[in-house]
Lab assay of single mutants.
Amino acid sequence: PDDEWKERLREAEEKNNWKLFEELARKAGVSEEKIEEWKRRWS
């Protein structure tokens, strides 16, 4: 299951679909801290 969400995150990233990325990350149990960090790195 871990690989599956990583794959989906990669797809979201490729499409630059931040909303989807964020949603998937939350569902995968990624901390808000980590998500914010990704946001900063991404923008």
Rank of each mutant, 00 (worst) to 15 (best):
1 P>D: 12
1 P>K: 09
1 P>I: 14
1 P>F: 14
1 P>S: 12
1 P>H: 11
1 P>T: 12
2 D>W: 14
2 D>M: 10
2 D>L: 10
2 D>V: 10
2 D>N: 10
3 D>A: 12
3 D>F: 11
3 D>E: 13
3 D>W: 12
3 D>L: 10
3 D>Q: 12
3 D>R: 09
3 D>H: 09
3 D>K: 10
3 D>T: 08
3 D>N: 10
4 E>W: 15
4 E>I: 13
4 E>N: 10
4 E>Q: 11
4 E>L: 13
4 E>F: 14
5 W>F: 06
5 W>I: 06
5 W>Q: 03
5 W>V: 04
5 W>C: 14
5 W>P: 03
5 W>E: 04
5 W>R: 02
5 W>Y: 05
5 W>L: 09
5 W>K: 03
6 K>C: 15
6 K>S: 12
6 K>Q: 13
6 K>H: 11
6 K>D: 11
6 K>F: 14
6 K>L: 15
6 K>W: 15
6 K>Y: 15
6 K>I: 14
7 E>W: 08
7 E>A: 11
7 E>P: 05
7 E>Y: 05
7 E>M: 09
7 E>L: 09
7 E>N: 11
7 E>K: 11
7 E>T: 08
8 R>F: 13
8 R>Q: 11
8 R>Y: 11
8 R>D: 04
8 R>W: 13
8 R>M: 14
8 R>T: 08
8 R>G: 06
8 R>S: 07
8 R>V: 13
9 L>M: 12
9 L>T: 04
9 L>R: 04
9 L>K: 03
9 L>D: 04
9 L>W: 11
9 L>C: 15
9 L>V: 05
9 L>S: 03
9 L>G: 03
10 R>D: 05
10 R>T: 06
10 R>P: 03
10 R>H: 08
10 R>Y: 08
10 R>A: 08
10 R>Q: 10
10 R>L: 11
10 R>C: 15
10 R>V: 06
10 R>F: 07
11 E>F: 06
11 E>A: 09
11 E>Y: 05
11 E>M: 08
11 E>H: 07
11 E>L: 09
11 E>T: 07
11 E>Q: 09
12 A>N: 04
12 A>W: 08
12 A>Q: 04
12 A>G: 03
12 A>E: 04
12 A>V: 05
12 A>Y: 10
13 E>N: 10
13 E>G: 15
13 E>R: 15
13 E>M: 15
13 E>S: 15
13 E>K: 15
13 E>D: 07
13 E>V: 15
13 E>P: 04
13 E>Y: 15
13 E>A: 15
14 E>W: 10
14 E>N: 10
14 E>I: 14
14 E>R: 13
14 E>T: 09
14 E>L: 13
14 E>V: 10
14 E>C: 15
14 E>S: 12
14 E>Q: 12
14 E>F: 13
14 E>Y: 12
14 E>P: 04
14 E>H: 12
15 K>W: 07
15 K>L: 12
15 K>N: 14
15 K>E: 11
15 K>T: 14
15 K>Q: 14
15 K>Y: 07
15 K>F: 08
15 K>M: 14
15 K>V: 08
16 N>I: 06
16 N>F: 10
16 N>V: 05
16 N>S: 07
16 N>Q: 11
16 N>M: 10
16 N>D: 08
16 N>W: 11
16 N>A: 07
16 N>G: 14
17 N>S: 07
17 N>R: 07
17 N>G: 07
17 N>M: 10
17 N>P: 03
17 N>D: 13
17 N>I: 08
17 N>Q: 08
17 N>F: 13
18 W>A: 01
18 W>M: 04
18 W>N: 00
18 W>E: 00
18 W>C: 07
18 W>L: 02
18 W>P: 01
18 W>V: 02
18 W>R: 01
19 K>S: 11
19 K>H: 11
19 K>Q: 11
19 K>N: 11
19 K>A: 14
20 L>Y: 08
20 L>G: 06
20 L>W: 14
20 L>H: 09
20 L>S: 05
20 L>T: 06
20 L>D: 10
21 F>D: 00
21 F>I: 05
21 F>M: 04
21 F>S: 00
21 F>L: 06
21 F>K: 00
21 F>W: 12
21 F>R: 01
22 E>W: 12
22 E>Y: 13
22 E>P: 00
22 E>N: 02
22 E>V: 11
22 E>Q: 04
22 E>D: 04
22 E>F: 12
22 E>K: 03
22 E>G: 02
22 E>I: 11
22 E>L: 12
22 E>H: 04
22 E>R: 03
22 E>A: 08
23 E>V: 05
23 E>P: 00
23 E>L: 08
23 E>R: 04
23 E>K: 06
23 E>H: 05
23 E>W: 14
24 L>N: 03
24 L>T: 06
24 L>A: 08
24 L>Y: 11
24 L>H: 04
24 L>P: 01
24 L>R: 04
24 L>E: 07
24 L>V: 08
25 A>C: 13
25 A>P: 00
25 A>F: 05
25 A>E: 00
25 A>D: 00
25 A>Y: 02
25 A>S: 02
25 A>V: 05
25 A>M: 12
25 A>L: 15
26 R>A: 02
26 R>C: 05
26 R>N: 01
26 R>H: 03
26 R>I: 05
26 R>D: 00
26 R>L: 04
26 R>Y: 02
26 R>S: 02
26 R>F: 03
26 R>V: 02
27 K>V: 06
27 K>I: 10
27 K>P: 00
27 K>E: 11
27 K>H: 08
27 K>Y: 07
27 K>L: 13
27 K>F: 08
27 K>Q: 13
27 K>W: 12
28 A>N: 06
28 A>R: 06
28 A>Q: 05
28 A>K: 05
28 A>F: 13
28 A>E: 04
28 A>W: 10
28 A>Y: 12
29 G>W: 00
29 G>N: 03
29 G>K: 02
29 G>I: 00
29 G>L: 02
29 G>F: 01
29 G>R: 01
29 G>M: 02
29 G>S: 01
29 G>A: 01
29 G>P: 00
29 G>V: 00
30 V>H: 04
30 V>P: 00
30 V>R: 01
30 V>Q: 02
30 V>N: 01
30 V>F: 15
30 V>I: 14
30 V>L: 13
31 S>R: 03
31 S>F: 01
31 S>E: 04
31 S>V: 02
31 S>Y: 01
31 S>D: 05
31 S>W: 01
31 S>M: 03
31 S>I: 02
31 S>P: 13
32 E>P: 10
32 E>H: 04
32 E>L: 06
32 E>Y: 04
32 E>R: 06
32 E>C: 14
32 E>G: 03
32 E>A: 09
33 E>Q: 09
33 E>D: 10
33 E>T: 07
33 E>P: 03
33 E>S: 10
33 E>R: 06
33 E>M: 05
33 E>C: 13
33 E>Y: 06
34 K>E: 13
34 K>H: 06
34 K>D: 13
34 K>I: 14
34 K>L: 14
34 K>Q: 15
34 K>T: 14
34 K>M: 15
35 I>H: 00
35 I>E: 00
35 I>V: 02
35 I>F: 02
35 I>W: 02
35 I>N: 00
35 I>T: 00
35 I>Y: 02
35 I>K: 00
36 E>F: 06
36 E>W: 08
36 E>M: 11
36 E>A: 12
36 E>D: 09
36 E>K: 07
36 E>P: 00
36 E>V: 04
36 E>S: 07
36 E>T: 05
36 E>N: 08
37 E>Y: 07
37 E>S: 03
37 E>M: 05
37 E>T: 02
37 E>H: 03
37 E>G: 02
37 E>R: 03
37 E>Q: 05
37 E>F: 05
37 E>D: 08
38 W>T: 02
38 W>G: 00
38 W>F: 11
38 W>H: 04
38 W>S: 01
38 W>L: 08
38 W>R: 01
38 W>P: 00
38 W>Q: 01
38 W>M: 10
38 W>Y: 11
39 K>H: 09
39 K>Q: 03
39 K>C: 10
39 K>P: 00
39 K>G: 02
39 K>L: 09
39 K>M: 07
39 K>V: 04
40 R>G: 07
40 R>Y: 07
40 R>F: 07
40 R>V: 07
40 R>L: 10
40 R>M: 09
40 R>I: 07
40 R>P: 01
40 R>E: 07
41 R>Y: 12
41 R>W: 15
41 R>V: 08
41 R>F: 13
41 R>T: 08
41 R>H: 11
41 R>N: 11
41 R>M: 14
42 W>A: 02
42 W>L: 04
42 W>D: 01
42 W>N: 02
42 W>C: 10
42 W>K: 02
42 W>R: 02
42 W>V: 02
42 W>H: 03
42 W>F: 13
43 S>N: 12
43 S>I: 14
43 S>E: 10
43 S>F: 15
43 S>G: 14
43 S>P: 09
43 S>L: 15
43 S>K: 13
43 S>Y: 14
43 S>A: 14
43 S>T: 12
